[in-house]
Each structure stands twice: as C-alpha cells, then as structure tokens.
C-alpha cells in the first residue's frame, strides 16, 4: 500500500466504529497523508510510508509549551506511560513531542484505520495526563 492507496481507501470509508474521516495529501519531499478523525479534529494523524513500515504520527506539543522546570519530570512520566498506552509510543521530532505507531509495510487497511483511531484517542489521553507540565 502506498499513500495514494490509503488516501483512496479512507475517502471511500464512510464511517468506521462511529468515526468518520477526512483525508488530505500533503505535498512535499515525502508524501504525507493527513487524516482527521471526527471528534478529534484538533489533533490530526499523519501517515507516511517507508520501505519497511507505515508510520502514523500525531503532534502533541512543542518544546515552548513545556513548563521548563518540570521538563525532566514530564519526560520521566512519558517514559513510564509508554508501555501501558496501547499500540502507541512517544517520541520527539525536532522541537515537537509526538505520539506514534509503526505498522509493518504490508499491514492491511483495517490495521491502519484501527491505528489511526487508537492514536487519536491516545493523543487526547496523553495530553490530558500531561496538562500539569504544559503551559
């Protein structure tokens, strides 16, 4: 599956488990697909595909939103909740803290949809767990 295939499948998908999706291809050096899950419009999920995996990423907050003297404690907490959080993990890209899930390149479309929904839900969980550390 490439980004176009996934985009087409998402456009054809009216609703899944009560969620609806809005998808948009973002042009650039690497093709990125933006998926907006209904009720979670503020935190889109971005899909990019490499030779080995399908990466689904949501951007949580930037460095400048972090209360600086709580930064260490926040990171420790993020490490601690990494495993309990189903299917998703935390990472950092540049100055942005992200949550992501990686799927095998040959995963089914259903796997991708499931991942996207889980990621959107986990993003909200994660932010609400971390509000004490954010400005």
């Amino acid at each position: 599956m490439n980004t176009q295939d996934i985009a087409i499948r998402f456009s054809e998908l009216n609703s899944y488990q009560g969620f609806s999706f809005d998808c948009q291809l973002i042009p650039g050096d690497t093709e990125v697909l933006q998926i907006v899950v209904s009720d979670y419009e503020e935190i889109p999920v971005y899909i990019s595909i490499t030779e080995t995996q399908i990466l689904c990423i949501s951007y949580l907050w930037s460095e400048d939103e972090v209360v600086q003297d709580k930064r260490g404690a926040m990171m420790e907490l993020m490490l601690e909740i990494n495993i309990p959080m189903p299917l998703s993990s935390f990472s950092k890209i540049g100055d942005k803290y992200v949550i992501f899930g990686a799927l095998m390149a040959n995963s089914s479309f259903e796997d991708v949809v499931h991942e996207v929904i889980t990621l959107a839900e986990n993003s909200v969980e994660a932010i609400s767990a971390m509000t004490d550390y954010l400005k």
């Binding site: 973002i26 042009p27 650039g28 050096d29 690497t30 990125v32 933006q34 503020e42 971005y46 990019s48 990466l55 990423i57 951007y59 949580l60 907050w61 930037s62 939103e65 890209i93 540049g94 942005k96 932010i127 971390m130 509000t131 954010l134 400005k135």
Partner: peptide
C-alpha cells in the same frame, strides 16, 4: 520523518492556519 514534519509545518504556514497548542 523529518521531511514529513517539514512538509506538515510548511502546509500549516501556507494555509495561514495555526497549529493549536496542546491544551
């Protein structure tokens, strides 16, 4: 991943919409 992030950031900058803060 870095290129994707750059594309997303550019896209937001181009569309005049602002990435909301997490809170």
């Amino acid at each position: 991943v870095q290129k994707a992030t750059a594309a997303i950031t550019d896209n937001f900058a181009g569309s005049n919409s602002k990435l909301l803060g997490a809170k």
